[in-house]
Nucleic acid binder design. Structure first.
Lengths: 134, 134
DNA sequence: ACTATTGCTTGCTATTTGCAAGTGCAAACG
DNA sequence: CGTTTGCACTTGCAAATAGCAAGCAATAGT
């Protein structure tokens, strides 16, 4: 396993998902609720297949995501967020809000953030309930 | 410069501070308001001096931090967050809250989070005002 | 003048990343 | 059935990055 750098909560968090790819995987799982390996590969940022495999394993070990059987085929694997992973939603939202303030962002995401700003707490609570149910 | 991976706000954000060290530097600047290079080096996670120099330069280029003259000595340099950097506070808070839910965290940080939970919006607004003033 | 401190830079090695190709299994097709 | 296709990974290797240790220029202190 990886050595803990310190017991600071920020450090602990970064030890798990503090790399260039993990939060993008998590973002995609927030947006789609569940995805196959192949679908995750297609993310616009272009993650390499070996890196994706490594990150998925690490995120699973850390308890943020879990594998699920695909209803249509044994050849496919579904990935989804665990409750612990879903709890990252507030962080994800705040990242989006920060970036929106300083960079141009896609229209569909902007629309979502408009909803968020109407009632942040409500939006998050609702989205989390949805994600934990599925 | 670094190539943009996509125009997703999460991706844009990670392109700037999505590595193992940047958010720790930013954390220290939140806690101390301003720090010298040497003080940043002393962080418990033990960042290497060349990496710290590289990250500080990148964060400065990105507009998250700025250099400041030290009032006592020309040999020293003070680093502090810009308004854009201060605006990361909500993200930082949510990271702390997430980690607190799943890991044991130091008592002093726990005390701070207790304040946060009493009135999150108020706490953030206040802290940000403090940081932007200094 | 000389010694220490501060903020870096440089050289080198170890680890990680990323590309391209390959493997094994399950499903679809003839 | 036998063969091909699709999917989820592995593997091998080159390139980039991280990290350690040492060095260096500009203050500051004595």
């Amino acid at each position: 396993m990886k050595p803990l750098r310190s017991d600071c909560p920020v450090s602990r968090s970064l030890d798990i998902w503090g790399d260039k790819w993990s939060l993008l995987i998590i973002r995609d799982l927030f947006l789609a609720k569940q995805l196959t390996y192949g679908e995750l590969l297609k993310a616009p940022e272009g993650i390499a297949t070996n890196i994706l495999a490594a990150r998925l394993q690490l995120l699973e070990q850390s308890g943020l995501i879990e594998k699920l059987e695909h209803p249509d085929s044994k050849a496919k694997v579904l990935y989804k967020l665990t409750p612990m992973g879903v709890d990252l939603l507030p962080i994800m939202i705040e990242i989006n809000l920060w970036a929106e303030k300083y960079f141009p962002i896609p229209a569909d995401r902007k629309a979502m953030l408009k909803e968020v700003k109407k009632d942040k707490e409500g939006f998050i609570k609702n989205a989390m309930k949805e994600l934990k149910r599925a």
